[in-house]
Nucleic acid binder design. Structure first.
Length: 227
DNA sequence: ATGCATGAGTA
DNA sequence: ACTCATGCATA
């Protein structure tokens, strides 16, 4: 219901889909989308992209490593932990941080959900996503600690007769089967998906999305070796 | 904290 | 039809 402008940026757009499989990309790719939150990621991605571009210029052809501390997994991990620690010290919840980001008047930066803050702290986001969010959360942390006496508010009360989204739950047996299929073929064809769906008596779309989410999981910082 | 889902951007 | 960032709903 609330509208924060959308942004379009060639830099981020040009590096959207990563060439999975080849020598790991030290590039920054991030996408913008979703309402207000979209703008946030967009801005962050833009900044990082610019920085990477500058550093990339050095490596002519053969080299492709970015020794930037901001992209170093260890640095991110350390920051995430420090962040959580200090956040708790401030007596602020993950949800609070998320909404407070909007009050931080960074151009194009809106609010984020409790889910995203949680995932940032637990490193269960993609490496690129972590890099994009770090500067934003760091800015919030500094401001929050600086004005530790201020008050925070988030009077967002709006309601109507909106239909609640239902979360379909896949039973354990079916889930095990899916995992088995995934181990053999992480990217089944549409036909294969249809077959699996029928066999497990699940909607084809549910199966398709399950595979998509499973692939994303593998790319999360915490479990991916492809930093 | 995490499962299933959406939507923009890309190919 | 996929990837990727992100979120609602829920355990």
């Amino acid at each position: 219901m609330h509208g924060l402008g959308h942004l379009s940026h060639p830099a981020a757009a040009a590096a959207m889909n990563m060439p999975s499989g080849l020598p790991h990309p030290g590039l920054v790719a991030a996408a913008a989308h979703h309402g207000a939150a979209a703008a946030a990621a967009a801005a962050a991605a833009g900044q990082v992209a610019a920085a990477s571009a500058a550093a990339a210029v050095v490596g002519a052809a053969g080299l492709a490593s970015i020794c930037d501390s901001d992209t170093d997994p260890r640095e991110l991990e350390a920051f995430a932990e420090r962040f959580k620690q200090r956040r708790i010290k401030l007596g602020v919840t993950q949800a609070d941080v998320g909404s407070a980001l909007a009050n931080l008047k960074i151009p194009g930066v809106g609010s984020l959900s409790q889910s995203t803050i949680c995932r940032f702290e637990s490193l269960t986001l993609s490496h690129n996503n972590m890099i994009a969010l770090k500067p934003i959360l760091q800015a919030w942390l500094e401001e929050a600690e600086g004005a530790q006496r201020e008050k925070m508010n988030k009077p967002e009360l709006f309601n109507g007769g909106e239909k609640k989204r239902k979360r379909t739950s896949i039973a354990a047996p079916e889930k095990r089967s899916l995992e088995a299929y995934f181990a053999v073929q992480p990217r089944p064809s549409s036909e294969k998906i249809a077959a699996i769906a029928e066999k497990l008596d699940l909607k084809k779309n549910v199966v398709r999305v399950w595979f998509c989410n499973q692939r994303q999981k593998q790319k999360r910082m915490k479990f991916s070796a492809t930093y």
